[in-house]
Each structure stands twice: as structure tokens, then as C-alpha cells.
Simulated assay, not measured.
Amino acid sequence: MRSTILKFLGIIIILAFTKPEEVQQFQGKAIYFSKSKMELGRWGARMSEAQKKQIKARLKNRLEKEYVLNFNKKESYFMEEEKIDAISGATDSWGKNFSQGNQYKNVQDNELVQSQEFYGKRFLVKDKLQKIDWKIEKESKKIGNYLCFKATATIPSKELTWYDFAWSDLRKAEKKKDSLGNDIEPQIEMTKVEAWYTPQIPVSHGPGEYWGLPGLILEVTAGNRVMLCSKVVINPKDKIEIEAPEKGKEITKLAYQEVIKGKMIEMRNNRGRRRR
């Protein structure tokens, strides 16, 4: 424990003597690998192991992803490395409608700008960064060459996947009545998040929606998803340009969710009419 504290103090001393121009030029690139567990719900109980393996192979591109995070002291740009489906030889066009687009974060100005494509239309989602009340824990561990410290938080689940959709979202959004006929507000689902950050890389960035810790976030576990940094390059030879996306219809996160909801209700209604 004493050696950990001494290392932490050493990092603070180094930062205190860093020249302003060096801080300004500081930039880097981090590669993350994301893996999610397959959730089949009640349908899984009816499937054989062979069927589960087949579905898992088909959904591999959705369950396993690779991302790149470019960053400097105040800005970051997060994007997915697109992969070809090993089975069909094509990209996942359906899943792309509900996947996370290229994301720009400015932690100094509390600004989020994210490019999203939904059924052929391009949107530019502009909003504030999701506030995260992190709790710094006592545990530490090494990730690669970096000493990392643990932090935890509880975040509204929809704030982490606001660009995504599940048919259950429509059922949850429908108003329910109590015994007196009054509307019952739907319960807000929360997700427990565990993050590991390193003060050795003194930026407040992280992958996806995660940010706000005193060091780059190298690992995140949230629900059934884990994101782990596999490589970090600090001050690469080729200068990294970080700019916010500019193309698309400007919209807020909440308004974008309403667009998705409206389209999926339309699809459901059209499907119902065809069955008659």
C-alpha cells in the first residue's frame, strides 16, 4: 500500500513541473476491445446448445467490437473499427441502426457531439455530457504497464445506451394504471459500473459515455459488457487531429430517442396490418 501511495505522489510531482506548452501538446490514442454476454432471455430455455452457438456466431460482430479513442487534455474522439461479418461477408446493416456512432467529447466545455445514422438519415446529436458521480475505491491493479485505481458508480441504464433500442423499451414506456386509475411512472433502471483509471495518463477521458476520473479509464464493466484497453500510444509521431462531427440534423439525445421510438412503433403497426 505504501509503494502505491509513493507512486501516486510521484505522478503528482511530475505533473506539477510539466511545462504549460507540453500539457497543451499532450495527446494519445487508446485501443479498446469490447465484449458482451449474449442475453437470450426466456427464449434461451427453449434452445439447444447447437442453436445457441449458431446465434452467437451470427451475432459475433455485435457482441465483440474494437474501438479507437483519440484524446488530448480536453477533447476526445471515440469510434468503432468496422469489421466484416465472417459468415455473410457483409457488415451488420440492421445492427448499425442502433450502434454507437462516432463520438466527440469536450470535458472542459461539458459538450457531447455524436454522429448517428438511422435508416438512411444522418443525425448530429448535441448534448451535455452525462454527469457521473464516481466513488473512488481503495483497490488498485496493473493493466499493461499502467498502475490503475478502481472507481464505481450507478448510472441510469438508458443514459449508457440512448442510441440503442429493444422491443421491450416500447412495453416499458407504455403508461400503467394503479387501482385508482392513476398513471404509474415507469421505474428508472440503473446500471452498476466499475471502472479502472490510471493517473499516469492525466486526462479525464474514457471509452463511450465514461469520463470524469483523474486519469484515463482503461477498463469498464457495466451490466453484461466489458471494455478493456489493449494498447496506448502517447504523443505519436503523426499528430492527431480531433474535431467534432459536423454533418447531420442537429438533435438532442432525448429527441433522438423519440425518433427511434416513433420509427419502431410505425414498423410494429405496419407489421400488424400485414397480418390481417
Results as ranks from 00 to 15, higher is better:
1 M>G: 13
6 L>F: 13
7 K>H: 12
10 G>P: 03
10 G>Y: 04
11 I>C: 13
15 L>H: 09
16 A>P: 09
17 F>R: 09
17 F>E: 08
19 K>I: 09
21 E>C: 09
22 E>Q: 14
25 Q>F: 06
27 Q>L: 08
28 G>L: 05
30 A>Y: 04
30 A>I: 03
33 F>M: 14
35 K>A: 12
35 K>R: 14
37 K>V: 08
39 E>A: 14
39 E>S: 12
40 L>F: 06
41 G>Q: 01
42 R>S: 15
43 W>S: 13
44 G>N: 00
46 R>S: 13
48 S>P: 02
53 K>Y: 06
54 Q>R: 10
54 Q>E: 10
55 I>G: 07
57 A>C: 04
60 K>A: 11
63 L>F: 01
63 L>P: 02
68 V>G: 07
68 V>P: 03
69 L>R: 02
71 F>D: 05
80 E>T: 07
84 I>Q: 07
84 I>N: 02
85 D>E: 01
88 S>N: 10
90 A>N: 12
91 T>N: 06
92 D>H: 00
94 W>K: 12
96 K>Y: 15
97 N>M: 01
98 F>Y: 14
100 Q>T: 03
101 G>L: 02
111 E>L: 14
111 E>D: 08
112 L>R: 00
113 V>R: 02
113 V>I: 11
114 Q>F: 04
114 Q>Y: 03
121 K>Q: 12
122 R>Y: 12
124 L>H: 01
128 K>E: 15
128 K>Q: 15
129 L>G: 00
129 L>I: 00
135 K>Y: 14
135 K>I: 13
137 E>A: 09
139 E>S: 04
139 E>R: 00
140 S>N: 15
142 K>N: 14
142 K>D: 11
151 A>M: 07
154 T>G: 03
157 S>N: 08
157 S>V: 00
159 E>L: 07
159 E>G: 06
164 D>G: 04
168 S>N: 14
170 L>I: 15
173 A>Y: 13
176 K>I: 13
177 K>M: 14
182 N>R: 15
183 D>F: 03
199 P>E: 04
199 P>A: 05
203 V>T: 03
204 S>P: 10
205 H>G: 05
206 G>P: 00
216 L>S: 05
217 I>A: 00
222 A>I: 09
227 M>K: 06
228 L>W: 04
230 S>E: 05
231 K>I: 10
233 V>Y: 05
235 N>W: 08
236 P>H: 02
237 K>Q: 11
238 D>P: 04
239 K>C: 05
242 I>T: 02
242 I>E: 03
246 E>K: 15
249 K>W: 08
254 L>R: 15
256 Y>C: 01
256 Y>H: 04
259 V>L: 02
260 I>R: 00
261 K>R: 12
263 K>I: 12
264 M>S: 05
272 G>T: 14
272 G>V: 12
275 R>V: 13
